[in-house]
């Protein structure tokens, strides 16, 4: 299973690319936001994969474990801590996005980005 880390890195790269593609090319705003959540998940997966060690153990020191054996075999725990906060931040920004989408849907009656988030400044000038 030496290829696990490499495969995970590839998966995370694919997720980021799928997310970027969705964020750029899909017109539906909810799908755009889903794509953005895929970007975030891909990046999290990438950072977790950095800390992975083939044949290692979970980085929790259980009483009775040999410390030097633990130091050489445990996975690197720093990235795990980073990902925890990153997940929470991503979820909260997603929540804000959906809240604003709901407000804007009431105004425009559509989920199309090309209508909802187009440039409205000229239109308002001409209407007056």
């Amino acid at each position: 299973m030496a290829y696990t880390q490499l495969a995970v890195l590839l998966t995370s790269g694919l997720l980021v690319i799928i997310g970027l593609f969705a964020a750029i090319f899909i017109d539906n705003i909810i799908k755009k936001v889903i794509g953005i959540s895929f970007i975030e998940e891909g990046v999290n997966l990438f950072i977790i994969a950095i800390g992975y060690k083939t044949g290692g153990v979970v980085p929790i020191l259980i009483p009775g474990m040999d410390k030097s054996w633990f130091a050489t075999n445990a996975a690197y725990p720093l990235p795990f801590g980073l990902v925890l906060s990153s997940i929470v931040i991503g979820a909260s920004s997603l929540a804000v996005m959906f809240a604003i989408v709901m407000v804007l849907y009431k105004k425009y009656g559509t989920l199309k980005t090309s209508v909802m988030l187009a440039d409205h400044s000229h239109g308002s000038v001409n209407d007056e």
Partner: peptide, 13 residues
């Protein structure tokens, strides 16, 4: 240089 999201996304990428 409009305020349209699609143009902004395009240029940022």
């Amino acid at each position: 240089q409009e305020d349209s999201l699609n143009k902004m996304l395009f240029y940022s990428i």
